[in-house]
């Protein structure tokens, strides 16, 4: 297995819109942290959604974890191995309490309630969020929500993290904390971010999405 994720010649257009991606190719190897930049609407989020099969390219190949992925059934395994953290934490935290939200993934993977709660406790304490276990998700602050979405994704024990604008609406302290956490994680990552400082701290490689294609940043 040479690369974790390999997108080749991806084409994509939203219905009734001009194409966003016109032959984009991207490769993610183990231990890499690739930062993707590009102007608004360049298709950065679209690219991440294509990796986990929430959107299907009209042309091109998605190879993830050593297999080509085409249909919904192929992507079920990808979604477990590649954890996507959404741009707006409110989209992701849909369970009433933090514990339920973090346990949602593990329970879907067939873990028992006790096993799931063990994972919840372990993940939350590793992110220093132990006290949030029984908090109501919609009453968390922006920074807290962001960290909890990360915990919810890490609870699935993914091999790759896909982060969509993770520093949106974070203050300096929370951003510093996020950077510290991300640097301590072993996962390879694809990070979409407008935040130059953040990219410089996190990224091991940068690429630019321009005119629907990936070019070296």
């Amino acid at each position: 297995m040479s690369s974790l994720i390999e997108l080749t010649d991806i084409h994509f257009a939203y219905p009734a819109c001009p194409p966003v991606l016109k032959g984009a190719s991207l490769r993610l190897d183990g231990k890499e942290r690739v930062c993707v930049v590009g102007h608004n609407g360049a298709g950065k989020s679209t690219l991440l959604h294509i990796v986990v099969g929430l959107l299907r390219p009209s042309r091109g190949r998605v190879v993830a974890f050593g297999q080509e992925r085409r249909i919904e059934a192929d992507f079920l395994a990808v979604r477990r191995l590649a954890g996507l953290v959404f741009q707006d934490p409110d989209d992701q935290l849909f369970c009433p309490t933090v514990a339920e939200d973090v346990a949602f993934g593990p329970l879907n993977l067939g873990k028992s309630k006790d096993e799931a709660m063990d994972i919840v406790d372990r993940v939350l304490s590793s992110l220093d969020l132990g006290g949030f276990r029984d908090r109501i998700t919609h009453k968390l602050s922006g920074g807290e929500k962001r960290l909890v979405t990360l915990a919810a994704v890490l609870a699935m024990e993914p091999k790759v993290l896909l982060l969509d604008e993770p520093t949106n609406a974070l203050d300096e302290d929370n951003e510093a904390r996020l950077i510290e956490i991300l640097l301590s994680l072993p996962q390879a990552m694809i990070v979409v971010s407008h935040d130059t400082q953040f990219r410089e701290r996190i990224g091991s490689r940068a690429v630019r999405l321009a005119d629907g294609e990936i070019v070296p940043g």
Binding site: R79, D91, Q92, G105, N108, K113, A116
Partner: peptide, 23 residues
């Protein structure tokens, strides 16, 4: 649009029709 994004987020975490409640 938000509901579609939420469904996407749920699928990413292996949603298969049921939501386990823990209370």
């Amino acid at each position: 649009e938000r509901s579609e994004r939420i469904l996407g987020a749920m699928k990413c975490r292996g949603f298969s029709g049921g939501i386990p409640l823990l209370g």
